[in-house]
């Protein structure tokens, strides 16, 4: 990992691009041109950690949604997460090195298949995390962009509201709102969590917009009579996309953890539904006697949060190679 970091930092050193006048030895690069998007993709796919993270995340998502199915669509796993049954062999996992067996992750005390339960929990956690990530990004971007572009009273008002959200302890706030929303489904919970986690992005976007609005292409757009909305959407926001995407990935990672903590405290996902957090909360007392009930959801939380963070890391390096750690 550190090896790659150094690599990308080196590539990002402030040397002129070949297009800028100097000649390149390798003729292959002489007249090849890249758009910004292509450049970012190239750098991202060179980041091994991010690629691994992307692979792990995709694998988990496919596994979770294909195994037990979504809603009415059945998956390839024949057991259900809510059907009880007889406890076989003390509920121990039957998974070995090369075979899954009857209950690969074991069973809980009432004989439910723990693999199906973990898959269900992963589904819910992923859905909530992505809802939070996307919705909080939209709120934060909008508020940041309006505050940064219009300045004046709009900025004062929006930023004081942001400050207000920041000074309220996040967990307490989310717990109260989550308790109310938890009964009306996971999307409602996701929206509530998004409503309290947009603050960081709003500040980031505002900062970016403040510097972009002084650039001459924005003045040029204003001078030809472009409307405010069009300037924001076409000239300013596309240039903040790097910051936004990176912040979104980190928001997703922290949303997973926030949802987990809330469910663990009993304020998040309500039974009969399951999330990774509520699984850990339900079976924390079983940690000494049947540790697999604790380990499997734990490993999934860890894997998801870690892989999303790695992706975010890779995206940040790809969008802004000069931000290298040791350059």
């Amino acid at each position: 990992m550190s090896e790659q970091n150094r690599d990308s930092a080196m590539q990002g050193s402030p040397e002129p691009l070949p297009h800028a006048g100097a000649e390149v030895d390798d003729p292959k690069f002489a007249d090849k041109s890249y758009s910004q998007g292509q450049l970012v993709r190239r750098r991202f796919f060179r980041h091994k950690g991010a690629l691994a993270g992307l692979g792990v995340l995709l694998f988990i998502a496919v596994l979770a949604f294909s195994s037990i199915g979504i809603g009415p669509i059945p998956g390839w796993w024949d057991k259900d997460f809510s059907t009880t049954g007889t406890v076989v062999n003390g509920g121990k996992p039957t998974m070995g090195w090369f075979h899954l067996g009857e209950h690969p992750f074991g069973q809980d005390t009432t004989g439910r298949d723990y693999f199906a339960m973990v898959m269900r929990g992963t589904q819910i956690s992923l859905v909530i995390a992505f809802t939070v990530g996307i919705v909080s990004t939209m709120i934060g971007t909008l508020i940041g962009a309006i505050a940064g572009y219009f300045r004046g009273w709009a900025e004062s008002l929006l930023m004081r509201v942001t400050d207000l959200f920041i000074i309220i302890p996040l967990l307490v706030f989310a717990a109260v709102l989550g308790r109310i929303a938890g009964d009306s489904g996971i999307f409602a919970l996701g929206l509530v969590l998004a409503a309290v986690t947009w603050t960081g992005l709003a500040r980031l976007v505002r900062g970016e917009v403040l510097s972009l609005r002084e650039r001459e292409f924005v003045s040029a757009a204003q001078a030809i009579g472009t409307g405010h909305w069009r300037i924001i959407m076409r000239h300013i926001l596309p240039n903040t996309i790097g910051v936004i995407i990176v912040a979104t990935t980190f928001a997703i990672a922290s949303a997973i953890l926030l949802e987990t903590s809330l469910s663990y405290l009993g304020f998040g996902v309500q039974p009969p539904d399951i999330s990774l957090g509520s699984l850990i909360s339900d079976y924390q007392t079983a940690f000494t006697s049947r540790p697999w009930l604790f380990w499997f959801p734990g490993i999934f939380i860890l894997a998801i949060a870690l892989s999303v963070n790695f992706i975010g890391d890779g995206l940040r390096d790809a969008f802004d190679p000069r931000q290298g750690k040791d350059g």
């Binding site: 040397e15 002129p16 691009l17 070949p18 100097a22 390149v24 030895d25 292959k28 750098r43």
Partner: peptide, 12 residues
């Protein structure tokens, strides 16, 4: 002086 960049070597 040569620089190694993302796009190959730049002979400065």
């Amino acid at each position: 002086v040569k620089f190694n960049t993302e796009f190959g070597r730049v002979h400065a």
